[in-house]
Design a protein around this nucleic acid. Structure first.
Lengths: 140, 140
DNA sequence: GTTCCTGCAAAAGCTTTGCAGAAGA
DNA sequence: TCTTCTGCAAAGCTTTTGCAGGAAC
């Protein structure tokens, strides 16, 4: 089964596949680091020297509205983006700042208090210390 | 079993129970609406006309560090606070903006991908449309 | 020619910081 | 007296908005 290209995915969502948009979407899909606006902007500036943050914001808004990406708000002061729309959780290491994905499935019937509610979006965010940082601590 | 008062809870956490701090903590505990800074400030201004937002921010920071309250970041642009530290999820209705609590328990052993990780904090945020808004829609 | 994408600059909004006066021990 | 709590004002950041030039079709 062929994976659609980034451009095809944009077209399928009725978004014109401009070079900037392809690059921004591509970056979020390939880098699985759940980048911030700042990271996307700084990284793509190398390849697109005229890129502006406005375009990054505009594009992220367009991609979000088309539900090609989604927002991650683990921390109040940093908005991140994720192109993986499957149900999974995010773990942020408070020591090194890395974000890890993990598998989790929340069955609606195991939830009390939301009977008759329409659930569009589920987010699971954990924080703590990752295995790698825990291991390093012992070596220090 | 006696519940400790707000002042006692502050003292137990080595926080001086000033009037502002008691009122702010009290507001978060009593109002179970998970208020924003803005809401806390505006509401308490009635009773404490000289209150400043700086004091609200300062106090929230102190309470957070003492783990008497916790941050809720369902949306990127609104930071909310919750004094209920028990494990529960938050549902935000995208139509009326209300936030509902719901029961959920995440067993660590049902999570794949975080073996050997230290988990400090778990957050579950859902979005959608609440029962009440769904019912109203039919009446409109 | 028309649409809409891009990017500069300015504005807006929230949060933090610096500092001085006030309150409390 | 000494500490620290409070609050004004300013600064800092991120995000949004207005608008004009430019690319694409």
């Amino acid at each position: 089964m062929e994976q659609p290209t980034i451009a095809e995915r944009l077209i399928n969502s009725h978004i014109k596949p401009s070079y900037s948009r392809i690059k921004i979407m591509e970056y979020i899909v390939n880098e699985r680091s759940h980048p911030t606006v700042e990271e996307i902007y700084n990284e793509l500036l190398i390849e697109l020297p005229t890129l502006s943050k406005t375009t990054v914001y505009n594009t992220l808004y367009v991609l979000m509205k088309a539900k090609l990406i989604r927002l991650i708000t683990i921390e109040e002061n940093e908005t991140r983006y994720d192109a993986d729309l499957s149900e999974h959780g995010h773990f942020k290491c408070e020591r090194c700042g890395s974000i890890y994905d993990f598998c989790i499935s929340l069955e609606n019937n195991s939830i009390e208090g939301l009977n008759g509610f329409l659930i569009d979006d589920k987010n699971v965010y954990f924080k703590g210390v990752c295995q790698s940082c825990l291991a390093n601590k012992n070596n220090n």
